[in-house]
Design a protein around this nucleic acid. Sequence first.
DNA 1: ATTAGGCCCTGCGCGC
DNA 2: TGCGCGCAGGGCCTAA
Length: 270
Amino acid sequence: MPELPEVETTVRGLRPVLEGHRLARVEPRRADLRRAIPQDLRQRMTGAVVTGLRRRAKYGLIDTDRGDTLIFHLGMSGRWRIDPDGIGAHDHLLVETEAGRLLALNDPRRFGSLDLVETAGVDEWPAFRALGPEPLGPDFGVAHLARMFEGRVAPIKLLLLDQRIVAGLGNIYVCEALNMARIDPRKPAGRIGRAKLALLASAVREVLAAAIEAGGSTLRDYARPDGELGYFFKQFRVYGREGEACSCGGTILRQVDGGRSTFACPKCQR
DNA sequence: ATTAGGCCCTGCGCGC
DNA sequence: TGCGCGCAGGGCCTAA
């Protein structure tokens, strides 16, 4: 379930296991995920000390004292298993610390990725250079949205999913934020007034912060080898709730936009 | 320059 | 019980 809050939760869960620890074993179990896994990953990571973990958009970053940064993306189905009870078919990377903790990057669909780049140049990494601002950072707000949406006729939902405009939103939280701000997902982005955009910017920050909070509260579950990630889904307003009642009393509809499900309330989202 | 659509891959839940 | 179908949190590529 990896959108921004899930990756943030993952990074926070990995931090106590990895930060400050030397890696005794780094072992890819296959040659590729979405794309090839760097062939020198094992050699460059084994013996290194992890100096820190961070997140950028939906990517997790693991910095080492050798000046390298391991960048992981969880795709649709990726997650890290902590001290797993055995190695499974979809555990594609094993990481073991000198302290004896074992991590397994598990990703059945293999839409995720692993890359190793020099820490000093990480901001210039091609996938990062094109990213828009962090939605929880200082550069995101109504002014940014207004600037990016000006003159655009594409549905606002599709633009919010564009990582070049805002980095880290996915299908769930876009649906949630649009419902909170009472905006029709199909409305042309450039025709949405500034007051609505202000509501939207606030909704984006609010829903992400709440989801991180919920994920943080379930780190114990996350850390179990068979654990699932986060339980914010219990708080979804519209996502996955087709036919149920919106908080306004309307009935939530599911429609398909750009090949992906959109959940929205036709009564209050206009 | 945008945007629509297809594709990558596996697993799960549903209806028959 | 078994099988086929649709669907899934993402991102990248092509073609119009």
